[in-house]
Amino acid sequence: MTQGTTLSLRPQPEAVVPETAMVMAAGLGKRMRPLTATRPKPLVEVAGKPLIDHVFDRLRTAGVKRAVVNVHYLADQMEAHLRARVKDIDVLISDERAQLLETGGGLVKAREMLGDKPFLCVNSDNLWVDGPTDAIRSLAAQWDDARMDALLLVVPLARAHNHPGSGDFRLDAFGRIVERREPGRMAPFVFTGVQILSPRVLRDWPEGPFSTNLFWNRAMEAERLWAVVHQGLWFDVGSPPAIAATEAVLAEM
């Protein structure tokens, strides 16, 4: 599979977007210092609004009805912002003030709020622009519960703006994720921070903090880890220099 290949798992039916989303917002934002000295990273502004507002704009457009948001660093600010800004999506708080649980542990802590149906999971420190179709709806249209435990939105490494890494995954010709990047090598696709997960993946977890990689690896071994390639713009907004770089591209649109 070459970089930039457009994958189509199957003809797109009418998208059934999950009603519930998990918004990952509990990180410390160390790479974004000094901007995060007095505010949590999701409240850092890019293109005129906080990162988490961009996320909620996308959730709102896609038709998501409720969002579970985990909080840890400067959690009071996060909660106050969500109360003031989000009126049309039901927001539930998964409180990690006592212990930051990383992505996998955060999902486990929030599992009862996420329900028993497939749910959307979105990182709050990335920014994307839809391509010809709404990215979340495109992801939802490809979800196949019989074949999938996780469906990730990925972007070609060559189009991953500001991304400092070497890629994350290799895909087969059908869109199944078949390989994680190995140390010292590059992989053609980068995870955008947007995915649909089945509640089935939340099982047999370790105590304390751990990464979602545990669930992905299990799904990949079972040939149930899939991807859809994002056709629009995507930005890794992880550091102060990335803000200016992102805004410069958006200003040219």
Rank of each mutant, 00 (worst) to 15 (best):
L120E: 11
L120H: 07
L120R: 12
C121W: 06
C121V: 09
V122K: 00
V122C: 11
N123P: 04
N123G: 01
L127W: 08
V129C: 09
V129P: 02
V129I: 15
V129M: 13
G131Y: 01
P132N: 04
P132E: 01
D134N: 15
D134R: 15
D134A: 15
I136D: 08
R137M: 06
S138H: 08
L139Q: 03
A140Q: 02
A140E: 10
A141T: 10
Q142V: 07
Q142W: 02
W143R: 09
W143D: 01
D144V: 03
D144R: 06
A146V: 04
A146R: 04
R147H: 12
M148E: 11
M148S: 03
M148T: 07
M148A: 13
D149K: 00
D149Q: 06
A150H: 10
A150W: 05
A150P: 07
A150G: 06
L151Y: 11
L152S: 10
L153C: 15
L153S: 15
L153W: 09
V155R: 08
V155T: 14
V155W: 05
V155H: 03
P156L: 04
L157W: 06
A158M: 13
A158C: 11
A158L: 08
R159G: 04
A160T: 06
H161D: 13
H161K: 10
H161T: 15
N162C: 10
N162W: 09
H163M: 10
H163V: 09
P164L: 12
P164E: 12
P164G: 11
G165V: 07
G165F: 10
S166C: 14
S166F: 13
G167R: 06
G167K: 00
G167F: 02
